[in-house]
Every structure is written in structure tokens, then in C-alpha cells.
């Protein structure tokens, strides 16, 4: 079903998200305002060993989507299917057992580690929770994981504050890898890091992916990093997917006006930005525009764009890509 997968990636999807939506707020005893729709009707699938990049600006719902896929937030509607099992239908115990196989790496390496417990104990948590090892076995595995992520086994005894940001992100990755998961959600894992350290972590993730056959959902606002790491890309704007397809194709010829604007606005050392920047800012999620969410800033918007949300349809010239734009055929 997935024509985009590079060779070596199995075609059977490991994970599917079907029509996922999530809203926050609203309702309540006193009906406090309208609900905020953070993610609206997102479909996605991820094959074993595949890396999918999710790209967008603040408020586009990319972080919420990552948490929905791991069922850390229950979806308001839609469902997540992991190897044929719908996560929302699973009893709590079975869901917890399944968590062994799907993990998360967070953006802020300072907030994602418990400041009061040694890093070794935190890396071993997953092993002990899922009874994959006894105390001695866990210690050996922690040492192995620390080595695998470029740290020293002796570091296990230390507390998180004794490490730099890059080292902490390695620890967080080691913790996520401990239970040998099949799928990892990485939510902006390099955004808080310096450029030189960022490259170390991106390379580490790329290596781990090829060594361990991990499927990766890589959430980022940095298009250059996504291009380095991912097979496929999903561009989101205000809770909706506006374009998706193979990373190479989208970066070479972005089709949606938003993807184009995003690529043009990204500063580059080699090609200074020449295009006029996109006007305005991302509208509030609490009060999205009618029709296409991007129409208020879109240089190609027409009157019909305000009427209805364009469906996500195949790219007129390339059936493996999809985009949601009423004017796709004219602009292609």
C-alpha cells in the first residue's frame, strides 16, 4: 500500500491513525467557550522501519498528534491501530503492556528527566516495569544502552543535572530504547540543542534507525533536519494535513502554497531568502478561518477557498503525493 517506502521497509503498516481529531476545552459545567480543535481529521500510516516527518509552525497540532499516536492523549474521535489492535479499545493493562513497543523522546532534555533519580534508574524503568530483566540484567542493559548512545556506563549513577543538554537527550533516547521498541515518537528532539550537538543527535537517531529497524515519527519545525532524517513528510497547518509525500519530492517541488512559503522562509547559508515573506501570522487555533485554514495568508487564495476545506487528494502530477488545495491543479 505504500509505494513511497524505500527498499527494505516492509509494506505492512505498523501503525495507522484513522481520522484522528482532538479538541481541548469547551463544555464543562459552565460551558466555557468553544472547544479548541488542535488536530482535525488526520489519517496516517507508518511502516516498520519508516521515518515520517511532521512539519509545521506553532499551533499546527504536530505535538498533539504525536501524543495521540501513543495514546498519551485519547483522541476525541478517530482511532489509532497498532499492529491491528485499536489502542482505545484495549483494557488499561494491555495498553500498558503494549507501551513497551512504542516510546517517546521529548523536546526539552531538561524537563523530560526526573531531577531526583539517577539516570541509570530512569533508563532501567521500562525494563523493570515490563519485567524484561531483574536488577542485574537491567544494570547490564543500562550499560549497553549508555554505550550505544555515546555515553559511558559509569554515568548511570549520576543525576540528570550533572549532564549537558546534548548528553541528557542521549539519556532520554537510551531510556526510550531500553525496551527495544518498534516505534518512537520524537517531539522536536533537537530544537533545544546547539547546532554542533544537534548534528550528533540527528546522526544518532539515523544510526539507531538503521541498526534497530525503528519506525520513527519525527516532529520538527526545522525543515532541513527533517529532510536529513525522514523518508516521508507530512506538512500541517492549524490542525490539518495540507501536504504529504516523499521527503525528496516535497523538498524538490513543494506543491501546497504553505509548503512553498515555509521552504522559502527558511533561512539558508547557501541560498539567502529572496522571496517576500508570507504576510501575517498563524491564526488562533481557537478561532480558525472558514474553509481552507491557510487562505488568510495564502498568496493564491480565491473566494472558493473561504467556503469549504479542500480535501486531501492526490497530487495532479504525482499520485504518491497528496495535498489539500482547491487550486492544486492550476498551481502545479
Amino acid at each position: 500500500m505504500n509505494a513511497l517506502s524505500p527498499p527494505g521497509i516492509s509494506a505492512a503498516p505498523l501503525l495507522r491513525g484513522e481520522n484522528l481529531s482532538r479538541s481541548f476545552g469547551g463544555g464543562g459545567w459552565f460551558g466555557r467557550g468553544r472547544p479548541i480543535l488542535a488536530v482535525r481529521g488526520v489519517d496516517l500510516h507508518l511502516a516498520r522501519g519508516e521515518a515520517l516527518g511532521v512539519v509545521g509552525e506553532s499551533g499546527c497540532g504536530k505535538s498533539t498528534l504525536g501524543r495521540l499516536l501513543l495514546n498519551l492523549l485519547p483522541p476525541t474521535s478517530g482511532k489509532v491501530v497498532f499492529e491491528g489492535e485499536a489502542l482505545d479499545a484495549l483494557p488499561a493493562g494491555k495498553l500498558r503492556a503494549l507501551r513497551r513497543r512504542m516510546q517517546m523522546v521529548f523536546q526539552d532534555p531538561y524537563g523530560s528527566l526526573d531531577p531526583r533519580r539517577s539516570v541509570g534508574a530512569q533508563i532501567a524503568d521500562g525494563l523493570l516495569i515490563h519485567r524484561m530483566a531483574d536488577a542485574t540484567g537491567a544494570a547490564a542493559r543500562v550499560a549497553e544502552l549508555l554505550r550505544q548512545t555515546g555515553l559511558e556506563p559509569a554515568h548511570a549513577m549520576r543525576l540528570p543535572h550533572e549532564f549537558s543538554g546534548g548528553q541528557r537527550q542521549r539519556i532520554a533516547i537510551a531510556r526510550a530504547l531500553a525496551t527495544r521498541p518498534d516505534f518512537i515518537v520524537a517531539d522536536e528532539p533537537v530544537s533545544a540543542l546547539d547546532v554542533s550537538i544537534q548534528a550528533q543527535i540527528v546522526n544518532l537517531l539515523a544510526d539507531l534507525r538503521s541498526e534497530l529497524g525503528l519506525a520513527l515519527l519525527f516532529i520538527s519545525h526545522d525543515l532541513h533536519v527533517v529532510r536529513h532524517l525522514c523518508d516521508r513528510v507530512m506538512v500541517m497547518y492549524l490542525g490539518r494535513v495540507v501536504e504529504q509525500g516523499s521527503a525528496a519530492a516535497i523538498f524538490a517541488a513543494p506543491a501546497h502554497p504553505y509548503t512553498r512559503a515555509l521552504l522559502e522562509a527558511t533561512p539558508s547559508m547557501r541560498h539567502p531568502v529572496t522571496a517576500a515573506p508570507l504576510p501575517g501570522e498563524v491564526p488562533s487555533v481557537a478561532n480558525p478561518p472558514s474553509g481552507c485554514p491557510f487562505r488568510t495568508r495564502c498568496p493564491a487564495a480565491e473566494s472558493r477557498c473561504a467556503e469549504a476545506m479542500p480535501p486531501l487528494e492526490a497530487h495532479p502530477a504525482d499520485a504518491s503525493r497528496q495535498l489539500a488545495c482547491w487550486r492544486a491543479a492550476e498551481l502545479a
Binding site: R96, L98, R99, R100, F106, D114, D125, I129
Partner: peptide, 20 residues
């Protein structure tokens, strides 16, 4: 906080998260 979410993501039960 992220490190509490991380415990949930690891599959820890409520008792473990509350106490540890």
C-alpha cells in the same frame, strides 16, 4: 511535566508514577 508523561509512555502504572 515531560518526565511524568515519560513514565506513562514507559507503561508505568498509576501507583508507580504516584509513589516514585
Amino acid at each position: 511535566l515531560d518526565y511524568v508523561t515519560a513514565q506513562q509512555a514507559l507503561g508505568a502504572g498509576p501507583g508507580r508514577i504516584l509513589l516514585r
